[in-house]
Design a protein around this nucleic acid. Structure first.
Lengths: 144, 144
DNA sequence: ACAATTTAGATTGTACACAATTTAATTTTG
DNA sequence: CAAAATTAAATTGTGTACAATCTAAATTGT
């Protein structure tokens, strides 16, 4: 037990978390490329498919992203014709993001992605549930 | 059970993994700022403190990062005086990264970081071990 | 009502992260 | 041994991510 053992990569929980996140996102790439989506755009579309219309603040809260990330992301998604960005008429500060027909249509292609990804990782239901719960707990902890 | 349930954010394992990684790294910031390190530089220093000298390829394998990320990272760390970058004399293609005295000295400050971080997350030993093992398994899986 | 404050997004600047390409050095092969 | 292939880093280009600041609109306090 050296004084500096706590600074070894293997004793860190954060490092495998960081690697795992990165590597899984990289694994998505071949499945998302045909859809013309990056991973971040994909999770943004997940919210759009479900909600149809959300403002930037709501989207940021859902995705844990701020306007510095979302503004350019949403502009690109608008260029691709997936969403429209329009100021709320009730409150001019608010920007509503509305899914287009084209964006909605992309869902048909996207349903194949989770299935394809699942086959990359051999976690049983129990482990998956456990991981999901622990991650949720950490996220809660960190946000006080 | 809708046809599109698999595209809901809550059914994804990857999303909490992504959020968790991001938020923990953000949590490091106030502890790493006084050391003048970013998170990526911090994990690179962890390898340096342990190995003293590694080449870019080895470092990349350990950190799961490529030269596109490491080259600029190591140049910044050299500017800060934490490491030296020098071509291997045996093989001119290889770039050795060698820790400096100053880099070595920084370890004294850094030992406080893991302790400080630990108090942010209230995982018991059992949960931590479990998380660590499952993450390791996923990383293995993904790398075939 | 109106100045002060708060709020929602946008902008700016810095730092990864990675795919794809390039360059130079070393190995392998015919 | 010389050409072909491989390898290690560096470079280029795109896309996040986030802190800090800015701007404009809405809300609050007096």
């Amino acid at each position: 037990m050296g004084k500096y053992d706590c600074l070894k990569l293997e004793t860190q929980l954060c490092f495998p978390l960081y690697v795992c996140s990165k590597e899984i996102i990289r694994k998505y790439k071949p499945y998302l490329d045909p859809l013309g989506l990056t991973y971040t755009q994909y999770i943004a579309m997940m919210v759009m498919w479900e909600r149809k219309k959300v403002n930037v603040k709501e989207l940021g809260e859902r995705l844990y992203l701020d306007s510095g990330t979302l503004t350019p992301l949403l502009k690109k998604m608008e260029e691709k014709g997936l969403v429209r960005r329009e100021r709320s008429s009730e409150d001019e500060r608010v920007l509503d993001v509305v899914i287009t027909d084209e964006g909605m249509a992309l869902r048909e292609e996207a349903v194949k992605v989770p299935m394809a990804m699942k086959s990359c990782v051999t976690l049983n239901m129990e482990e998956a549930k456990l991981l999901y719960d622990v991650l949720g707990k950490i996220i809660q902890d960190i946000r006080e």
